[in-house]
Amino acid sequence: MAKPDPALLDAARYPFSCQIEPRFGDLDVNMHINNVAMAGILEDARVRFFRTAGGLEHLAGLSTMVASIAIDYLGETHYPEAVTVHGAVERMGRTSQTVLQVVMQEGKPVVFARTVIVMVGPSGPAPLTEAYLESARQWMFRA
């Protein structure tokens, strides 16, 4: 599998970051953070990002649904060192947005993820609001 474009692994291009400490229970038999635990770390960071980007404020009454996720494991992730998850919006559509994440540990990229998130209302997919679109512009990936 080819590695992602190096520009996508540059933490300086991501406007959001948060630090998450892995738990001992996240380890696999080789003493690395297991893939399922890393998917959970990515999910936690996406929720933090969504809240920071104004999702709760500007999309009240709507839910989110992951329509697609691709996770590239680029290196081993170890316990107990914290990971820093960087996030950015890659693109926004009518009812969905694509979020990029790169996970760094000790200054090295160890995971890259691209997730398509759809907004959902009582009747199915719902449009992103103008207020959210305006707020989210500052959280775009810096090309």
Rank of each mutant, 00 (worst) to 15 (best):
M1R: 05
D10S: 09
A11G: 08
A12N: 02
Y14G: 09
P15E: 04
P15W: 06
P15A: 01
S17T: 10
E21N: 12
P22H: 11
G25F: 01
D26C: 07
N30E: 01
M31K: 14
I33M: 04
N34I: 07
A37V: 03
A37D: 02
I41L: 12
V47I: 08
V47T: 04
R51P: 00
T52W: 15
A53T: 09
G55H: 04
L56S: 03
E57T: 13
E57N: 06
L59V: 00
L59S: 03
A60G: 08
A60R: 07
L62T: 14
S63P: 04
A67K: 11
S68C: 13
I69W: 07
A70N: 14
A70Y: 07
A70I: 10
Y73H: 12
L74N: 06
E76L: 03
T77R: 05
T77H: 03
T77N: 05
T77Y: 07
A82W: 07
A82V: 09
H86Q: 04
G87L: 10
A88G: 09
G93W: 14
T95E: 05
S96R: 04
V99Q: 12
L100Y: 13
Q101E: 04
V102Q: 09
E106G: 13
G107T: 00
V110I: 13
V110L: 07
F112W: 15
R114F: 06
T115R: 08
V116D: 04
V116R: 08
M119A: 14
P122A: 15
P125T: 08
P127Y: 10
E130Y: 01
L133D: 03
E134K: 13
R137H: 02
R137F: 03
Q138D: 14
Q138T: 11
Q138G: 15
F141S: 05
F141C: 08
A143D: 11
A143S: 05
A143Y: 01
